[in-house]
Write a protein that binds this DNA or RNA. Structure first.
Lengths: 128, 128
DNA sequence: TATAAATGTTAGGTTAACCTAACAAATGGG
DNA sequence: CCCATTTGTTAGGTTAACCTAACATTTATA
């Protein structure tokens, strides 16, 4: 029943979640800066995410994730963290590149691969 | 100076290269089947790839990669093979899923990460 | 508190990557 | 060698994700 989101939509949820943690109030401008796109693009996409009940947002107001939106954001962020950890700690990629790669790969990795990657990280940790 | 291709364009080059190896002559229909899209979409994209001098294709004729197109195809396939190997041999993902994941991640992995992944695979091999 | 600056939205346009319907060319069996 | 089948192209349409320009609202400061 889970309608799957596009990579772009996943990025929005992730960014909103991250901004919320450091800024208490999230605004269109913050999201635009973070995603390096223009405000009208953000306005437009927020309409879609509101329609899907993933964010709450009234004209000129602050932006918040719904319960559902937050759950999805946490999922994406978990994928991101796992990938980042692998890239940075195992492959010893510098944090900036590891972050960029994680940002892109987090949208295409399958559930099984993610699970195995987490298990792999566990096993590496315990043998160090 | 390398204008970077979209994931879609990379997929075309990869598929054309793979088909060439098993079918001697590559046609619009084969590519469409492989990518699970319709023939008109393929026709259209081949125009673009011809314009970019990555494939050779005349109306109703067979499809071939140019030198340049072949080089790019080989690069993509190398990324694919490395990812597949890691997923399948290290994480022990089943071949089908490993292939699907590799197909998607091959477009976003950075050069550095790819290099480290290859080195990692080498080190794992020698310690088994 | 009026108004300038900052922020947000609307309207309308572009591009990539798909589609269907209709037409055109090539091929192969009777 | 003709014509049916298969293959390919053209025309025109859709959607997602961006954009700029113009306008609207909010906020902050003189």
């Amino acid at each position: 029943m889970e309608k799957t989101l596009t990579p772009t939509m996943e990025d929005y949820l992730e960014v909103i979640s991250n901004l919320k943690k450091i800024k208490q109030v999230v605004r269109v401008k913050n999201i635009a800066q973070e995603l390096k796109i223009k405000m009208p693009s953000v306005s437009e996409t927020l309409k879609f995410l509101s329609k899907e009940r993933l964010v709450r947002h009234e004209r000129y107001g602050k932006i918040e994730l719904t319960k559902k939106g937050n759950e999805l954001a946490e999922e994406v962020k978990s994928r991101h963290r796992t990938l980042f950890k692998f890239l940075n700690e195992v492959l010893e990629i510098d944090p900036e590149t590891a972050n960029e790669d994680a940002c892109k790969m987090e949208h295409s990795i399958s559930a099984i691969t993610l699970k195995r990657l987490m298990e792999f990280l566990e096993s590496v940790k315990s043998s160090s």
